[in-house]
Simulated scan of single mutants.
Amino acid sequence: MDWRRAKSVLILAFLMLNLVLGYQLWSNIREGLSTSAKAGDLSPETLRIMEEKGIKLVENIYIPAETPELQDLTYRVRTKLSDGEKHVLKEPVESRIVFNEKQLIEGLGDIIPDIDQYVFDVTTSDDKKLILYRMEQMRPMFDVKLELYSEDQRIIAYRQDVIELVSTEKAVENPVLPATIAMAPLIEKFLASGAVIKEIKLGYHGQTFAKSDIQVSAPSWRVMLEDGNVYYIHAVSGEVVTEDELSS
C-alpha cells in the first residue's frame, strides 16, 4: 500500500468534509437571521383561499418572519394630535430631512418635542403630509404619530402625539405569532375578493379610550391594502381588528 498517497487522500477527504460542514453551518446561520418570508410560506389552505378570492401581495413584498417576545405598552398621553391645531414653523425646512435622522434632529429638534424618538413611515405618507411614528423597542407605535405638513417640498407645520411611558409590573413578554400564521383568519374572513396587500409590519396598537389619558398598546401586525384599508392583528391572540373598531 502506498501510505503517502493514502495519507493525501485522507487529508483531502477531511478538507472536503470541513467545507461541507462549514457551508451547512453558514446556511443555517443565514436562515436563522432571515427576517422575511414569501407568500409561498403561507399554509396550503391559506394559499388556496387567496387563489379563490383573488387576493394578492404586491410585487416584491415579503412577509416578516420575525417572532420576538414583546409586552404590552402602557403610556400617558401628554399631547393629543387630534385635539391640537397645527403648529406653523417660523422658518420652513426642506422636507427631505425626514430621510436622515441626524438632519431631522438638527432641523427640527429644537422645535418639536422628542423628535429623535419618531421615525418616518413612507407607506402612510404623501407629498402633503409626512407621517412619523413614535418608536419603542425599535418598533413603531401606530397610535402615536407626528404629522409634518409639506408645501413645495418644505415642511411648514406639524401636529404631534406626545406620550410618556408608564412602567407596570403586570407587563409580561410573550412570543408573537408569525405573520404567516396570524394572517390566515384575516385572509379567510375579512379581506374582500381582489384585495391587494401592500405592507405587513410589526408594531404596537390598541383601542383608544377617549375619556382616559392612560392608554395600552399591544404588539400587533399592521396589514395595509392598496385601497387604503388597514387591519390590525393582535400579535399574541391573533384577533383581527379594523381601524373603525378601535375608537370608543
Rank of each mutant, 00 (worst) to 15 (best):
D2S: 10
W3I: 12
R4M: 04
R4K: 12
K7T: 02
K7C: 06
S8Q: 09
L15T: 05
L15Q: 04
N18T: 04
L19G: 11
L21K: 01
L21C: 09
G22N: 05
G22H: 09
G22M: 08
G22W: 09
Y23V: 09
Y23S: 10
Y23A: 13
S27D: 13
R30H: 15
E31S: 08
G32K: 11
G32H: 12
S34E: 07
S36H: 08
G40Y: 02
D41P: 00
P44A: 07
P44F: 06
E45I: 02
E45N: 05
E45C: 00
T46S: 14
E51Q: 15
E52S: 12
G54E: 12
I55Q: 03
I55A: 05
K56Y: 03
K56Q: 08
V58K: 10
V58H: 01
E59R: 06
Y62P: 00
I63W: 08
P64Y: 11
P64A: 11
E66M: 12
T67E: 15
L70E: 07
D72Q: 07
L73M: 07
Y75S: 05
R76K: 11
T79Q: 14
T79S: 10
G84F: 03
L89H: 00
E91P: 00
P92M: 14
V93Q: 02
E94T: 11
L104G: 02
G107D: 01
G109A: 06
I111F: 01
P113C: 03
I115T: 08
D116H: 12
Q117R: 14
F120G: 09
D121S: 13
D121T: 02
D121W: 10
V122F: 15
V122Y: 13
T123M: 14
D126I: 02
D127P: 00
K129Y: 00
L130W: 04
I131P: 01
R134K: 10
M135K: 11
R139E: 11
D143R: 11
V144K: 04
D152S: 14
D152I: 05
A157H: 06
R159F: 03
Q160T: 07
L165E: 14
V166H: 05
T168E: 15
E169Y: 11
K170Q: 06
E173H: 10
E173W: 03
N174L: 14
P175D: 08
V176C: 07
V176A: 13
V176H: 06
L177D: 11
A179Q: 05
A179D: 08
T180F: 02
I181N: 10
I181F: 15
M183W: 08
A184P: 00
P185N: 13
P185E: 12
I187H: 05
F190R: 13
L191P: 01
A192N: 05
V196P: 00
K198T: 03
K198I: 03
I200R: 03
L202Y: 07
L202R: 06
H205D: 07
H205Q: 14
T208K: 13
A210E: 05
A210C: 01
S212N: 08
I214Y: 14
S217R: 04
P219H: 10
P219T: 10
S220M: 12
W221I: 03
R222F: 02
V223N: 06
M224N: 08
L225P: 00
D227G: 01
D227I: 01
Y231N: 07
I233S: 11
A235I: 03
V236N: 09
S237C: 06
E243N: 06
D244I: 03
S248N: 03
